[in-house]
Amino acid sequence: MPLLPPRWRLLLVAIAALSLPILSGLAWLLLTGWFDQVHGLVPTGRLGPDNWRFLWEAVGGRPSVWIPLRNSLIFSGVVATVVVLASSMAAYAISRLSFPGRAAYLGLVLVLHAFPAVSLIIAIFFILRRLGLFDTLTGVILVKASLELPLGIWLMKGFFDYLSWEMEMAALVDGVSRWTLFWRIALPMVRPGLLALGTFALLSAWGEFILPFTLIVSNQNWLMSAYLQTFLGEAFTDFGMVAAVGLFYAVPVIVLFLLGQRYLLNIYGGGVKG
């Protein structure tokens, strides 16, 4: 690698300095997860897999970690799918069809997005109770997906607005129905948007804590975030295990990133190419 010009070296130093708090946090997580004891960032105890025993045994009356992991995978996967499908259909309708109340609906969606989830949680609790969906994965999935929809609809509307009308006219003359037009022409052309939205929804659902924490009680329905929280709520907190569970919780996201690296960077870099 060629030596960087001085200006760039300065920039690198600045970036490194800004990233230091996050990097040291990650370093702490890694060290604490693998050593018996850590003072600051200096390990003092033995290196060993003791903190990771939650992987093969149930710890302190909790269910096996594989149950919340499975729940979290289902939760995030379904939320992302629902959000991508529902927002793209709604966005297409808003972008392309004219129907009464279109502008009002668009405004309403934006207003809905302004409500923080926490402020709605009591109402949501009562609604889920009434529907018999309290303490179920289905219930939390529906709530989380609904909260993600406003952003998704606006994002996808932006993508659909850029599709050329001539393209749709051409498809109509070629003989498509509205539905075929949506599935076979419009959707494939906004694929970058679908991927971006799907990724955001997946990550947001994976990291979701408040909703599953308040709307799920039975430990068989726990998500990973709630499982992790139980370690912090104890009289004596085993930070080694908290770190290990935290690392374990992050593994699927890292795997997702490694698999989709090229695509994701393209999206984050603003590369919306048709």
């Binding site: 050329s164 393209m167 006219m169 051409a170 109509l172 003359v173 070629d174 494939p188 694929r191 048709g274």
Partner: peptide
């Protein structure tokens, strides 16, 4: 009639080919 029932072919200014 819907365009598909009219038996017309059309060429557009932008060609409107499906890029994917």
């Amino acid at each position: 009639l819907h365009p598909r029932d009219r038996d017309v072919g059309m060429v557009f200014q932008s060609y409107a080919l499906y890029p994917h």
